[in-house]
Computed example of a mutant assay.
Amino acid sequence: MEAFLSFFELMPVWQKLLWISLVLFFFWILEGYYALIKFRYNKWKHARTNFILLGFVMLINLVFGFLTAGIFIWIDQSGFGLLNLVELPVWVELILAIMVLDLIAQYLVHFLLHRIKWLWRLHLIHHTDTHVDATTGTRHHPLDFMVRESFALIAIIITGMPVAFYLFYRILSVFFTYFTHANISMPTKVDKTLSYIFVTPNMHKFHHHYQLPWTDSNYGNMLSIWDRMFGTFIYDDTSKIRYGIDIVEDTTSNDIAYQLRIPFNRKIRTKN
């Protein structure tokens, strides 16, 4: 187990970038053969917008990387955090760390991004995509992503987890991000069965429906248990889904300049 975790701790940047590229490419290809919705769109033009936003995200991730490294050094020196108060098997601590990260850095922050007005304005850009596919997982406003990363730091401090746990979680998170957004058709029975524990492609697609109440549901990233536990889980007929958001014109979906200005555009009237 120690050797397994050391691999992620010592994983060079190029391998992390390769993992992101391979996972995205895999689902990009897969959705071409097993599409949930047969889109009529320019796949490359659509991806360009989301890849530009991914570029911003990666720059922010670089900055937060230094801050995160400082926090891990402090935790190592101070012994701060819940996991440092008890002696548990490494695999148990790893599972607990992943669960806390998924709860705080994914479910909780996502819930707040929908419920607090100024945060919702930052998050809107993720919902303005009218052709949800694997690249939509990269579609975040830079300020939205900074909020998300801040919550990840909170989860790290609370648990006092070692850096290897966090890096393993990030690898898993990349997979689930592209998996759940991918425009892939899974057998309903398989998707629904998996959704009892994990977030699945069909389950997450309801979150991208253009209107309430589905928009405010299925906030999880990896584990669906939080949505089930807190009453935000929805599962219905995917043929009813229409992508986009009802307060932003669909025609602006690929206009990168317009999208980046959305949080500051007072002509867009939010629900809060």
Rank of each mutant, 00 (worst) to 15 (best):
N272G: 11
F198D: 06
L112E: 00
I157P: 00
I154T: 01
D236S: 15
T49R: 03
Y235W: 13
I156S: 01
L54F: 15
F264W: 14
K16N: 04
M161S: 08
I71Y: 01
I125M: 11
L143R: 01
P162A: 08
A182D: 06
K205D: 11
L172Y: 08
L24E: 02
L119C: 06
I60P: 06
W74N: 10
K117F: 11
L112C: 05
K240Y: 13
W19I: 07
I29C: 14
K267G: 13
A257Y: 14
I125Y: 00
F145V: 03
I158F: 02
R148E: 14
D250S: 14
A182F: 07
Y219H: 04
Y235H: 13
A69R: 09
T159N: 01
K192N: 11
T138N: 11
P213V: 06
T135A: 15
M99P: 00
A182H: 04
E87L: 09
I125G: 03
F145H: 11
I95H: 05
L103Q: 05
Y178R: 03
T130K: 13
L83A: 06
A105L: 02
Y178C: 05
A155V: 00
R40M: 08
D255I: 13
I256C: 12
T270Y: 10
R148Q: 15
F8Q: 02
H127G: 07
D227E: 08
